[in-house]
Design a protein around this nucleic acid. Sequence first.
DNA 1: GTCCAGGGTGAAA
DNA 2: TTTCACCCTGGA
Length: 306
Amino acid sequence: MVVWDASLILAGTSRIASGSELKSLRLAIEPFDLEQTLDGGQAFRWHRSEEGAFRGVIGTRVFGIGIDGLAVSMTWEGNGESDEVEQEINDYLQAEVDVGEVRRVLSSEPGFGECVAETPLIRVLRQDPWECLVEFICSQNSNIPRIKQMIGSVARMGRRIGDDDWAYEFPTVEVVADAGEDHLRSIGLGYRGKHLALAAAALVGWGDGELTGLREASYYEAKDALMVLQGVGPKVADCILAYSLDKGEAFPVDVHVRRAAIRLYGLDENVKNESVGEWARDRFGKYAAWAQLYMFRDEINRRSVG
DNA sequence: GTCCAGGGTGAAA
DNA sequence: TTTCACCCTGGA
């Protein structure tokens, strides 16, 4: 088993300017599972480029991300000082999380612990709350390919920032609210178009920064606040809380994670989803969201194998 | 071509 | 508390 040694890289964090259009930097972060982290069902706007690298949009810029030897390297197009961009990336990847502790907490768990110990870590992202909210309102009763398609369509309502057909800044709450249900249906959201239109309209009335401000609220306070919005039930709320609002104790319970919990831990077949969440918070604490990604993956792998 | 399930939610029973 | 419709698409 190879355990990544932070000392190999931390001392040598370097910035490499390669011309004015495409810049790059290496991050002081342990290499992680890019595919499962960026394209495994918590974010829907990353696209595989070459050799296991991905490209996508964070905020107002198009980024590329790949593993370069023992380091994670990023490229970006357009403006932005290295320090500022590095801060933005570290924020998105939650670089400050002590992954050693995540391993300690999760590596002895049944079923997925071995995976935590011996393979690159799947990270919980820290996405923009509004974008994350749209993603998971669209996720209901759908599958990942379709979610990506819907999110791509919504993204195209934003400002174009690159040549690729997905290279758009995510549209603002106001733009989506003004578009309305009919337009959202017309771009393929189905009945979710109604939910998103109503949620966006409600959010327009929220105070400036009120949604992102839920990062400062408690888990239960923030969850109650989100569930006021149309199309946001307990599962979608937990996804937003886990993947954008710093709530590590959030444990989104979907059909797959539910099956995994029953299979791996012997929970009752008829257990309520809410009880599964409480069980997970009790067992995993602030790393429940991380555990959830592994349990989801474990169940999906199991089904794809047969 | 048909059929089914898809990272659920809201409304009605 | 439980049941059911809901838009539409990818995969079998």
